[in-house]
Nucleic acid binder design. Structure first.
Length: 888
RNA sequence: GGGCGCGUAGCUCAGUUGGUUAGAGCGCCUGCUUCACACGCAGGAGGUCACAGGUUCGAGUCCUGUCGCGCCCACCA
């Protein structure tokens, strides 16, 4: 069983991914046979876009799924809308690629064909979801005819809301994107501070020779003005009440109205009113029954109403209008002004407020229940501070414009009667108008906002509106893992929809992770093009390394900075695990040991020949127990980064650096299976299981080689149980001895390095200590100490009194025979140590002399300081002695 | 305008409910190609925890203020 010197992830990852699918092991629904493709493997560029941000979510979801799976918690269900689709894409492309079809040749048709094959094969819930979630996966419309499940749910929801009066249609001011040619919801408009101007324009007051000066940031809209507003309490303009002005350039007489819209403190205190092109003006227009003159059209060009400006682009028109006004001396002044400009999230085009007829959902009644379930704790956010953000939005929620002028999506199930204009809203296409019976019905051409269907995800994917087994079993789900960027778009609306249509929350916990940023802290996004290509980095560093890099940064509430350096270090860790396995397998061969793992993994106890269990075995098992306890707790609390760090430290710096180093010396060639071997293999196997959720591919590969095929055992490490803390492992007098060993060895090494001694030079040293266990340990591990430090500890050795080469720790100290010439360095360190110790002693003494401290601090704190003080003093005595010795 | 968050080692970040000498990775310095691993081993340097107050026996951690940075929401012409 030879392993290569360097771990090559590419060789194993696709193999295991395929294996897992075939075995149907990974389920979001861990009880059913539906595979969940939340493995982090390279995605395609073919059928959709994916960026590293999704991979974070995959990693979190997959890590959690595996952990729950291994613990035997079979009720977990993790929603993840787009991600299911994208993961499947990744799987498909990988598989097709392995069959010889290159990524570029795959294309949508082949892709769909394969997905359908899988659907037949597995009947997977996830695949069903992916197909139903067409819109958010950018699938083409014909998909919906293939599986009408979601379309049905959407129509059902629409009809129900309509019947309850929660959907209405009306003429409103909406955000229009001239490039997309569609209306946008408020959430899709991003406001940006932009340098602009404030033009002060003179409007001649009819019947007088004075002007009323209005200030505007958009002079071109004046062509559509139908009034000028002043504040009724504004004393400057009392005499203008009831008068009219002549709109320049258009020569239209328009009234001066009294309205709170005008803020006396802003600009000139007078506002031009353009009801057709400004939301505020629109409202004012309704109050004063003003005509709405549309001067800008859907292409952002001036309309015929704009007179001689008709046909001009809106910004061209602005220049022209300003020029014309200037020519007529009607510009009073132009100020620099910073204003907030709304732009389309996707195209960055400046959004034009237009009046149009759209469909809206009344959100207030829906929001009430959604607020209540969070207040009552039925839904919790992690980290908690997101609850505030959620409330903030929910309390101030505004009606939701759900219609879009696109063809890519679910069409609104409404039919307009060509004869009586009645709107027929229905689940199925009606033949006749419900009011006049006419057959001349035309379906509304608008489609629904993609989030309208997305909000139904938690139940529509389970078969709703039918009363299915899935629905009964899996609704509500336990946990949603997602990014905060879609908290309002998706999460909040899922809660509203869940309460409205299921009468129950859709999930109980929402874990909100940070965003992935690049090394420059830029948010990674498709549109910015600064994404790290997952294809490239997983190829380069390996999937496990990329995933671990993501997990290590995933502290709740913080963003994740992903860099190549990070992935380099996690790759090094992967390689470390690989090489630990390599060491073990090589030695197994030498010793003639066959693959073996304990029958009952959790119940295994370190054993020994002749009734003697080695200290290092006791120690490593007690550490395994502690680490398992920590990790189980931490994953349950979504502290993935601490999990990763703990496992890292344990495996590298305890298992490899100490345990394997010690074991190496214990294992004998041709020994056959011994207690030493059983302990080592059991410990290693447990460590692999602990690591599995964060390093799935690698641990699977090694585990499969470690566990004999013949033995009755789970088919995959992912089906084995996750290690728990164990009393059988924890009883450990060995722990102390190993600590002594570590102390002895690091002391000897430190001493050597500080004295700048050639590592090849053999040294003799003597160990001073009052504790017999320490001498026991030194004797017991003699060989290891010698190989590890090149120092022989000889109790009978009597160093020269002036040697001064001493390193001490609370339980003991070591003195080496070093040449006099190397002592200067040592003195420096001792001086420094003495200073530190004196400072510590002063501190501790002061604290212990403080009555208030003694009376108020808890006993264990006082006690620990007392013990520390004793240690410091012992130490100081040793250091002083060494210093005196070396100076004499 | 409202809300949220951040400021800890050269860099990127951890730091559970306040408790002793504040951690990790990368980078840096020194020494090692020792038969698992140079994607390695051993040792080491480096921090007034943004600043100023306060609460406390005790503050990186809690409170107030200041400065700097970021994000979200909002119809101020």
């Amino acid at each position: 069983m030879q392993l290569e010197k360097v771990y090559e992830p590419q060789r194993f990852e696709p193999h295991w991914a395929q294996w897992w699918i075939d075995a149907g092991i990974f389920h979001a629904d861990v009880k059913s046979d539906a595979p969940v493709f939340s493995l982090v493997i390279p995605p395609p560029n073919v059928t959709g876009s994916l960026h590293i941000g999704h991979m974070l979510e995959h990693s979190l979801i997959d890590c959690t799924v595996r952990w729950h799976r291994m613990r035997g918690d079979n009720t977990l269900w993790l929603p993840g809308t787009d991600h299911a689709g994208i993961s499947t894409e990744m799987m498909v492309v990988r598989q097709l690629a392995s069959e010889g079809t290159s990524r570029n040749e795959i294309g949508r048709e082949k892709f769909i064909e394969r997905v359908w094959k899988w659907k037949e094969q597995y009947g997977g819930t996830i695949i069903r979801q992916m197909i139903r979630m067409g819109t958010s996966c950018d699938w083409s419309r014909e998909r919906f005819t293939m599986d009408s499940g979601l379309s049905r749910a959407v129509r059902e929801v629409f009809v129900r809301l309509w019947e309850k009066g929660l959907i209405y249609r009306g003429e409103y001011m909406v955000n229009w994107c001239p490039r997309c040619q569609t209306v946008l919801s408020d959430l899709e408009v991003k406001h940006e501070e932009t340098a602009g101007h404030l033009w002060h324009i003179r409007y001649p007051v009819v019947g007088t020779d004075r002007y009323l000066v209005v200030a505007t940031t958009r002079p071109e809209t004046m062509l559509g003005d139908t009034a000028v507003a002043i504040n009724p309490r504004d004393a400057r303009y009392f005499e203008l009440h009831g008068k009219t002005v002549m709109l320049p350039l258009m020569d239209r007489e328009i009234p001066i109205i009294l309205d709170e819209l005008a803020d006396p403190k802003f600009g000139t205190g007078a506002v031009k009113v353009t009801p057709a092109h400004d939301p505020n003006d629109f409202e004012a227009g309704k109050r004063h029954d003003l005509p709405k003159i549309k001067v800008i059209d859907e292409n952002a060009r001036m309309t015929a109403e704009a007179g001689r400006y008709a046909g001009l682009d809106r910004f061209e028109a602005r220049k022209q209008v300003v020029a014309d006004l200037e020519q007529r001396g009607l510009i009073e002044k132009i100020e620099d002004y910073t204003l907030s400009v709304g732009r389309c999230e996707r195209t960055k085009d400046i959004v034009e407020p237009l009046i149009s007829t759209q469909w809206f959902v009344k959100t207030k009644p829906l929001a009430e229940k959604a607020i209540e379930v969070v207040e009552s704790g039925k839904i919790g956010f992690i980290p908690e501070n997101w609850t505030k953000v959620y409330y903030e939005w929910m309390y101030n929620i505004r009606d939701w414009c759900i219609s879009r002028q696109l063809w890519w999506g679910h069409r609104i199930p409404a039919w307009h009667c060509q004869d009586c204009s009645k709107i027929n809203v229905a689940r199925e296409e009606p033949r006749n108008c419900c009011q006049c019976g006419s057959a001349r019905l035309v379906q509304d051409t608008d489609v629904l906002d993609t989030w309208f269907s997305s909000q139904l995800w938690p139940f529509s994917t389970l078969g709703w509106p039918d009363d299915t087994e899935d629905l009964r079993k899996f609704y509500p789900t336990s946990l949603l893992i997602t990014g905060f960027d879609i908290l309002f778009f998706w999460v909040a609306r899922m809660i509203m929809a869940g309460m409205e249509f299921m009468g129950e929350v859709p999930f109980h916990q929402v874990y909100i992770h940070g965003l992935v940023r690049d090394a420059e802290r830029q948010k990674m996004s498709k549109t910015k093009g600064n994404t790290i290509d997952p294809l490239v980095v997983t190829e380069k560093y390996g999937t496990d390394a990329v995933r671990l890099a993501l997990l290590m940064g995933a502290a709740p509430g913080t963003d994740i900075v992903l860099s190549e350096e990070r992935m380099e270090s996690t790759r090094a860790f992967a390689n470390k695990i690989w090489n630990a396995a390599r060491l073990i397998f090589m030695n197994m061969e030498r010793s003639g040991v066959q693959p073996w793992v304990p029958e009952d993994l959790q119940a295994y106890r370190p054993e020994g020949d002749e009734g003697h269990v080695r200290d290092e075995d006791r120690w490593i098992f007690s550490r395994l127990s502690e680490v398992a306890e920590f990790v189980n707790l931490a994953i349950g609390q979504f502290r993935y980064h601490e999990v990763a760090q703990e496992l890292w430290h344990f495996f590298w710096h305890e298992f490899c650096d100490w345990y394997l180093e010690i074991k190496k010396a214990q294992l004998k060639p041709e020994s056959g299976m011994t207690a030493d071997w059983r302990n080592l293999l059991a410990a290693f196997e447990a460590a692999l299981r602990l690591l599995h959720p964060v390093m799935p591919f690698l641990t699977e590969e090694i585990w499969q080689r470690l566990a004999p095929a013949t033995q009755a055992r789970p088919k995959s490490i992912a089906l084995a149980s996750y290690p728990k803390q164990s009393d059988a492992w924890k009883t450990s007098p060995g722990q102390l001895k190993i600590r002594y060993l570590q102390n002895i060895m690091s002391s000897a090494r430190t001493l050597r390095t500080e004295m700048k001694l050639d590592p090849k030079v053999k040294l003799t040293g003597v160990l001073y200590s009052q504790r017999p266990e320490l001498h026991d340990a030194a004797k017991y591990y003699e060989g290891i100490i010698q190989t590890g430090t090149n120092v022989t500890l000889d109790p009978s050795y009597d160093p020269a009194p002036q040697s001064g080469a001493v390193i001490s720790w609370p339980e003991g100290d070591i003195e080496l025979n070093v040449p006099q010439s190397n002592l200067a360095e040592q003195r420096k360190r001792l001086e420094k140590e003495r200073e530190q110790l004196e400072k510590n002693i002063a501190n501790s003494t002061r604290q212990l002399g403080d009555e208030t401290f003694l009376s108020r601090a808890p006993a264990h704190v006082v006690e620990s300081i007392k013990t520390k003080l004793v240690d410091y003093e012992t130490q100081l005595a040793k250091v002083r002695k060494a210093l005196n010795g070396s100076s004499s």
